[in-house]
Computed example of a mutant assay.
Amino acid sequence: MTNNLAEYFNSWILPLRSLPIFDIVDEIKLKIMDMIADWKEDIKSWFIELCLVMEKKIKENLETLVNEQV
């Protein structure tokens, strides 16, 4: 898992390697800001304040509880 993450990051910054370090850091900052903006747009479609994985677990647990009571 760690190797995949490192390789992903390296491929992510590959076009930036020829730049000076200050410009590399600035470009990484801009990429992260874009990612956060995309996440915020995705979050607007959520129905509750939890992440989608936790929402799914809650629904599964509620269904199990209802089925056990029947």
Rank of each mutant, 00 (worst) to 15 (best):
C51G: 12
K57Q: 06
V66C: 05
L50I: 11
T2V: 14
P15M: 11
K57V: 03
T64M: 12
L14I: 07
N61F: 01
I24R: 06
Y8N: 03
P20Y: 14
L30Y: 10
V25C: 08
K31R: 14
V25H: 09
N67K: 05
W39D: 01
L62M: 04
I36Q: 13
L19K: 15
V70I: 07
D42L: 02
D42E: 06
L62I: 04
R17G: 14
L5Q: 12
K31C: 12
N10K: 04
K29G: 14
E41D: 03
F9P: 03
L14W: 05
P20H: 15
E7P: 00
W46P: 05
L62R: 02
L19F: 12
W12P: 09
W12E: 13
A6Y: 02
A6W: 01
V53Y: 06
S45D: 10
L65K: 10
I43N: 02
D34Q: 10
T2H: 13
E68V: 02
V66Q: 10
M33W: 08
V53L: 08
K31P: 09
F47A: 12
E7G: 01
N67S: 02
I21D: 12
D26T: 15
L14G: 10
I21T: 14
L30I: 12
I36G: 06
E41G: 00
L50D: 07
P20K: 15
L14K: 10
E63L: 11
E60M: 03
N4Q: 06
P20F: 13
S11G: 06
A37R: 04
N61H: 02
M35N: 08
F22C: 07
L19E: 14
M33Q: 15
N4L: 06
N3F: 08
M35R: 08
W12Q: 11
P20C: 15
I24P: 03
